[in-house]
Simulated assay, not measured.
Amino acid sequence: MGRSMNDLEIFERFPATRALGHVRLGQLPTPVESYPTLAAELGVGELLIKRDDLTGSLYGGNKVRKLEFILADALAGGHERVWTVGALGSHHVLATALYAREVGLEPHALHFPQPMTAHVLEVLRALSTTQPVLTPVESKNGLPFAMAKTHIREWLSRDKNPYYIPGGGSSPLGVVGYVNAALELARQIEDGECPKPDEIYVAAGTCGTLAGLILGARLAGLRATIVGVRVVDKVVCNAPLTAHMANKASQLIREAGGPDIPKICAGDVTLLDDFFGEGYGEETPEGLRVIETVAAHCDLELEPTYTAKTFAALAARAQSLADKRVLYWHTLSGADLSPLIASANIDRDLPPSYRALFDTPLPH
């Protein structure tokens, strides 16, 4: 059967899964590139990078793959707005708001604090251009209660029908986006576009990306060790939760007419805990060092919260990877946000409590 350049790999391999629904947001597949100079600097055998920074021109990174399935479901259900949750500098909240507006949905978000950086302020400026409805909470500890209050408020309003997207887009449908990503990588290997990696490193936040890669690799018969690097609190990122997410997505695929995939167990999940640092969004010395190292050898941009910690884990394990082919899965958007940032009107489009964030000196 001929292959369509516009079709997802999961649909090509398992046509019945088209029943899951999908809206085209991204530019897939993303390339796999080799970085021999950086590999030599780090001391690893061979370094490949899966360029998911290039998933979309409006906004890239790992959220786009998830939102293609999630927003399709929201539209199919007749919803008019989507509601999600994340930190002030959340790339997920930004991606959700941008693409929700793109398909005609109104974005709502519940925001919890994180350390303020210039990058966080840029994210907020870009977010403001979507004219989102934002609800700040005082601390992460207050999140469950605030979430309950927001659900009640949404229910009582009865004016529209909200659609909830979990943090990071890590719903079963969102996980399917990264099942497809693993199948996409397998296809690139089969077609000779890149060699098979021995190990794959990826940031692990809300676990959806990691769960999808593990499930998709098993589905494709891709025998690479997938290593998640934890970048959030352990209560929301752990092996049992990752396995649970993978199995919920597996059930969804099976119910849509796809294959029956063997159960994923917590023991199938590799998660590194040693690179989180002092907290979410807190810079680490090894992360800052690796940002400079990568920038000196290629045009890839890392940021301190997710990607630098993940790459720092890879660099720290270089001795054991000296004879291995390693793939780093880059999950940070590479889209140029400067036009959005330049057009931002934070006084008009952000709640009054947010404006003080832009007047507070940043820590050095």
Rank of each mutant, 00 (worst) to 15 (best):
V231N: 03
Q251K: 11
G167M: 14
L314M: 07
W155F: 04
G208F: 12
K248I: 08
P31Q: 06
E9D: 02
V294D: 05
A76R: 09
E41A: 15
S139E: 02
A246K: 08
N180V: 01
D260E: 02
L321T: 01
A211F: 09
L222D: 07
I226C: 12
T242E: 02
A239K: 15
A224K: 04
A220L: 06
G60S: 14
N62S: 09
K324A: 15
L71I: 07
G258K: 03
M1W: 07
I253V: 13
N6D: 15
R125A: 06
L362P: 00
S170R: 10
P162H: 06
L337Y: 11
A100N: 10
G43S: 08
K248D: 12
G177K: 04
Y59R: 09
R101L: 00
L173F: 05
T130F: 00
V232M: 11
D349M: 05
T96E: 01
P162A: 03
V123A: 11
V227W: 06
L54V: 05
L121M: 12
D349W: 01
E68L: 12
W329L: 10
L54K: 13
E303P: 07
F145I: 12
L252K: 07
G43P: 11
P172T: 01
E303W: 02
S171A: 15
H108N: 14
P113Q: 11
L350C: 08
L110R: 01
S343V: 02
K66I: 05
D323I: 10
W155N: 12
A296Y: 04
G287H: 06
T129G: 01
N345V: 01
R289K: 11
R289D: 09
R101V: 00
A224T: 07
A181R: 06
A224H: 12
G258C: 04
Q319M: 06
K196D: 07
I264N: 03
Y59I: 13
D198T: 10
I49D: 01
A118W: 11
S171Q: 12
S128P: 06
L67I: 09
A318S: 11
V202C: 08
I152G: 09
H22I: 10
Y280P: 12
T331Y: 03
L20S: 09
Q131A: 04
V123P: 00
P352M: 05
N62Q: 12
R230M: 04
L185D: 00
N247L: 08
R18C: 09
L213T: 01
S353P: 05
T150R: 14
L173V: 01
V232C: 10
G56D: 10
L67T: 14
L58K: 09
